[in-house]
Design a protein around this nucleic acid. Sequence first.
DNA 1: AAATAATGAATGAACGTTCATTTTTGAACA
DNA 2: TGTTCAAAAATGAACGTTCATTCATTATTT
Lengths: 208, 208
Amino acid sequence: MNERSFLNIRAFNRKHMSIISKSQIKRSALVKATINLVNNNGFHAAPMSKIAKTAGISPGTIHLYFENKQDMINQVYIEVKAAYTRFAFKDYKASFSVAEGFENIWKNIAEFKLKEVEEAMFLSQCDNTPMVDEASRQEGLKHLRPLLDLWERGQKEGIIKPVSPYLLYAFSIYPIAFMMNTQQQQHLKLTPEQINEAYNMAWNSIKN
Amino acid sequence: MNERSFLNIRAFNRKHMSIISKSQIKRSALVKATINLVNNNGFHAAPMSKIAKTAGISPGTIHLYFENKQDMINQVYIEVKAAYTRFAFKDYKASFSVAEGFENIWKNIAEFKLKEVEEAMFLSQCDNTPMVDEASRQEGLKHLRPLLDLWERGQKEGIIKPVSPYLLYAFSIYPIAFMMNTQQQQHLKLTPEQINEAYNMAWNSIKN
DNA sequence: AAATAATGAATGAACGTTCATTTTTGAACA
DNA sequence: TGTTCAAAAATGAACGTTCATTCATTATTT
């Protein structure tokens, strides 16, 4: 075991103890503070001292939860990405038709990106900069499988355009991030009608 | 005049002298180095000293061209954004039909994003972080007018979906940035056929 | 009272910026 | 063409600040 083994024990406890420990509270306060400060000032202007202060924690304490700043960013990224994909596939059933399944997933993602703005903005920043390392980026990508499988099925059924999944993602899912950005910068809130219009645009771009 | 007036004189010379001055060479070396280092390491890991070294220039010299690091980033952003929009509208004529005009602009933007990868990646990073200040962001947005006008015309003609221009942008232009990202990360090059498929997806999402 | 968690002042490295000094430039003159 | 010299440009060591990280000490929990 390496010098981080005690952290793993803590992680073990977090997973298998049903009580919410104090350390869990502090950790999630740190995660929240990190997301908040990185969103508002960028990674380069989110010093550990400020993150600690925002979380109501001493600077030194951060290093009980994370090895260093880079490790913290990586872990936060992976956690938020996991929450994002979990949300994306909630209520999803493999028995859905391709069209049903896609609408379900798309609207979940839209709901996440337009409502959990803090998390979504953080992800957008991480995905467009060298902030997080390649390994964490790969890790974050894992949980998207069900969507890729759905598209593959759709292509076999002749419902979905026979193009690279990257293109499908680029034209149907990725635009939601832009919608979130403008909604945030323009201080407006998209109406359900607008979201439905957006969904139709997404579907029109990938349907055969 | 403020303490930067001598810079303005330099800027005047740059604009009105046909010779390429040495200072112009150094400035553009700085701009190139900035783009390169920010792309590879992010803003927070692109120190002035490294930028200077990459540009073959002494650290102190940077401040003859830019007030400070923030000013440098802002200026580089505005310049690259201007180059981007200039490229986007090359060969564009107001006499084009809406469909012709859109295809022209879309393919220009795709060409820029997929070939001038360094510049495009830099823009993508700036557009998704608080790296550049709000004023510079607004400045960079100015030159997109012709596309918005085209869409408005298309909507009057009933060719383009009657939705917010932000949605039109999100689903037709923004995806190109994702295409660039994956092309870069996957070390592959999109074929002309794939680009055409992508264009069709863009058009399908915004056409009525 | 032993074990665990948290503290925060201290440390050293790294950064952006400054400015006294050196180098380069180019117009004027021989 | 070659020389001079004041102005302009460039240099890079030095400065003050900020940052991530450490660890001896204190507080809390069990």
